[in-house]
Structure formats: structure tokens, C-alpha cells
Simulated scan of single mutants.
Amino acid sequence: MAVIGSVAEFTAEEDWEEYCERLEQYFLANNIKDTETEKRRRAVFLSVTGGKTYELLKTLLAPQKPTENTYEELWQVLQNHLSPKPVVIAGWYWFWTVRQKAGQSVSQYLAELRRLAEKCQFGNFLNDALRDMFVIGLLDTAVQKKLLSETQLTLDKAYHVAMSHESAVQQVEEIQGASKQQVNKVKEHRDPQKEKGVISAEGHPMSQMIVSFEKSCVSRVVTRAM
């Protein structure tokens, strides 16, 4: 039977739990998943995790050898050493004190909250905790006030409102940037012999049209977002 996929050696930079999740999928794909294949599971585990992990196991298990333990026992020893259960109080501290950083998008901020929440054991309270901290930590006070005024606010609604507002702000900045470029072009191409002492770039008909168009677009974008 051909081997399906591969698993690289475990390194200190990786998350142990995520590595084990991938390893379990490798076992499943190659039909290495029941008690009849226990020895094979152990052999594959000791082989693919790499030399440094094997050396670590020998140190943690001494005077026993890794081959004298089952796969589950080996996994538990490494789990306790590489990924001990987090202190819940510390996890709560980091979760409840995080704030959206300058330059951090709404989606990136929510992703950071979800990552921190993994250490908090919120259980059924998870979505409420994410919603509350998402609103509290937002940088944009305008959208924060709008969300705080909602009586039936869910995490999903808070996220989509914040995303829409963020998108609208970006569009406004793009429109304003484009209009400034057009005004600069008017300044560069005006005839100094005809307009000297008569009309400024800001008073040029084309410049006035651009400013009017800009105000109209900005008004529509902001109204749609709110």
C-alpha cells in the first residue's frame, strides 16, 4: 500500500498540539488508527518526530526507553512537557486587556481575540466574550458608539458592522487621494500666461467639478456604511 502524504520533523518553533493534529490525520490517511497497529503507530511516531524529539523523550523517560512505552504514553509525556495546560487566570488577563492596534484590520483584531480565547476555557460563553471584547477594544470610536447602542448585538453583527465601516473609510481615503491628484494635474497644466493674476487652481472649473464630485461620493459612501 502506497504511503499517503508525509509529516516533517517536529521543531521547537511549532505548536505541539497542531503538530499532533496533523500527525493524527497522517495516521488516519494511512490506516494506522486502531489497537492492532499500536506498535506501528509508535514506530511511525518515533520516526517522523525527529532526532531531537527522540532525545527529549529519552531524557524525560529515563531510565526507561521510548520503545518500552505505548504511543499514547509517549504522546502524553511530550504533551505535558511541550504544551502544559495554561493557567486560566493568565489567559483571561491577556484576553481582557488586548486592544486593536494601529494599522491592525478588524479581521486581524478578531483573529487575535480568538487566539487568546483558546487559553481561557470560556465554553458556552465564548461568543459573548468575543463580542464584548471586540467592541471594547475597537480603535474607531464612531463604530464603537454605534455598536454600543445596539440592543440585540451578536458577534457576527458587530463584526460585519465594523467591517463595513472600515471598508467605507478606506473608500473615502481612496476617493480623496484620487481627487487631490486630479487637482494637482489641473495646477500643472494651466496656462500661466492666460491665468496669471486672474484665476487660481482652486477656482478652475475642472477643480470645482472634482471637489463637487468628491463631496457627493464621500457622502454616499459614509451614509451606506452607517
Rank of each mutant, 00 (worst) to 15 (best):
R40D: 15
L130G: 03
L155V: 01
D128F: 10
A90V: 13
A117H: 03
A90D: 15
R40A: 13
L60M: 06
H160C: 07
K85H: 05
T37E: 09
T37K: 07
T67W: 15
E21I: 08
K157I: 08
E18C: 11
L57T: 00
E18V: 11
E112T: 05
T35Y: 15
K65F: 13
L57C: 00
L147M: 01
T35G: 15
G123S: 07
C120L: 04
E72R: 10
L78I: 02
K58L: 02
T59V: 10
V143D: 00
E72W: 07
F122A: 06
T59M: 07
Y71A: 00
N127P: 12
E150A: 03
A142P: 03
Y93K: 06
G137M: 10
L155F: 09
M133H: 11
Y71L: 00
L61G: 01
V135H: 01
P86K: 10
N31I: 13
D15K: 14
R115A: 09
Q100P: 09
Y93Q: 07
S149I: 00
E18I: 11
F122Y: 10
Q144H: 15
V135C: 03
A29V: 06
L126W: 02
Q144Y: 14
Y109D: 04
G50L: 01
L23I: 04
Q104N: 06
K39N: 13
D156L: 11
G91H: 03
T35I: 14
K33N: 12
E68P: 01
Q76P: 02
T151G: 03
D128N: 13
W75C: 05
G103P: 03
Q121D: 13
L113M: 07
V48E: 05
L74Q: 02
F95H: 00
R131M: 13
A62L: 03
W96N: 12
L155G: 05
L139M: 12
